[in-house]
Design a protein around this nucleic acid. Structure first.
Lengths: 214, 214
DNA sequence: GAGTAACCTTACGCAGGAGTAGATATGCTG
DNA sequence: CAGCATATCTACTCCTGCGTAAGGTTACTC
């Protein structure tokens, strides 16, 4: 079939590792704009510039593929946050860095974010529940050590609740950010920093938070 | 077919309005636990104790049905918030009432909440985007009037961002609440009130917010 | 107590899309 | 430049689940 023009190969061969990443890139794009179910394996294969059986050969079923996407993007996201938060910094500085890392990721990987936030949440809780829980725990741990450094006490549930609130607020703003490509991630981070650190009361009184390090 | 036993009717007839509500109830339950795509019309019909063509006759296609669910639950949710917020109250009191209304709804309609939050967000933005936007606008309006009552100025984008943060934080805690049936909605509302009104800084210093009206 | 409109059912057509079988192309290695 | 492992394709099968056609059943009305 496929008239093989001599001199110009019918298709280009690439090593497995490379193709796998291309497929994942394509899958993330398609999942992000269609959602898990609306996305067809044909479309993903097409987007990757490859045929369907390749996807099955390398990455398994549609479910496996989706899991792989969530894993890759989730790991990247978590890295973006954890990498910049150092334990020995004051709480506001840690928070500020974490937020910048988070929004930086979202700004740079809008598709990945969409998959994690809009798609992965719906169906079975792939490994996303775990990921989100881990982020919440990181934040809660941050708050806890901040409280303890003032030799105070706080109920663990209250800290966890605050962590949930913080993560949810970040997700909400990130979602807005994902739909506004012209917006600046750092600006979003600053807005949320003001809100979450100062609280609505201070904010309504005109107070503003300023990063200590330029 | 179906040997009609005399004296015991083969099925019970009910007026359309009643059946429609039963169907919507069933659909919300099924959508909430399966997600839009995993939910089959057969299962919904079964859950409603009725056969499939009835669903099509009364509520149209699967898409229509889902829209109807989102509409009903969304309207109820919005009502729960708007109904209790009076314009002439101080900002913290308005916020407190809004939060209580919101968490009250979630606690009482966990399925409905799951449909709105986890399912409707994924696919095409039915009327949910509208709903969420409306809620954000209500909150933003609240903040704006609070600022103006202090004859101050604030950039509109900053207010909107705060509103997004607040809504996102509420959603996040609500989501946790939906998975913890034993938890008290009012307690969740109080926790978020503390976080969002006082901010992390005050909270870490041990400050607490108290409702003025018992 | 017949007529009729509104309910309600069983049983099917049909499309879309996941996953696979089997054949072919490519390029590295000696 | 022949041999072989690996990469790749085309062309199917088959199942799931949406939506519907055609025909019973019930209870209200006069």
């Amino acid at each position: 079939m496929l008239a093989s023009v001599p001199g110009r190969p019918t298709f280009k061969r690439l090593p497995r590792a490379v193709r796998e990443q291309q497929m994942l890139d394509a899958a993330v794009r398609v999942f992000s704009r269609r959602g898990f179910h609306e996305a067809s394996m044909d479309e993903i294969a097409d987007e990757a510039g490859i045929s369907k059986p390749m996807v099955y050969a390398y990455l398994g079923s549609k479910d496996d593929l989706f899991r792989a996407c969530v894993n890759r993007e989730g790991t990247r996201l978590l890295e973006s946050i954890v990498a910049v938060v150092a334990d020995d910094l004051p709480a506001d500085e840690q928070l500020w860095r974490g937020l910048r890392g988070f929004f930086g990721f979202v700004g740079a990987h809008r598709d990945g974010w969409a998959v994690l936030y809009r798609q992965a949440r719906s169906g079975q809780p792939y490994d996303l529940a775990t990921l989100r829980t881990r982020i919440v725990e990181v934040v809660a741990g941050m708050l806890r050590s901040a409280v303890e450094s003032q030799s105070r006490q706080a109920r663990d549930e209250d800290l966890t609740a605050s962590a949930y609130a913080l993560v949810g607020a970040a997700e909400s703003i990130a979602d807005w950010l994902a739909d506004h490509p012209e917006a600046d991630p750092d600006r979003s981070a600053a807005r949320l920093m003001n809100f979450s650190w100062l609280g609505a009361r201070q904010l309504l009184q005109g107070e503003l938070w300023q990063p200590s390090s330029a």
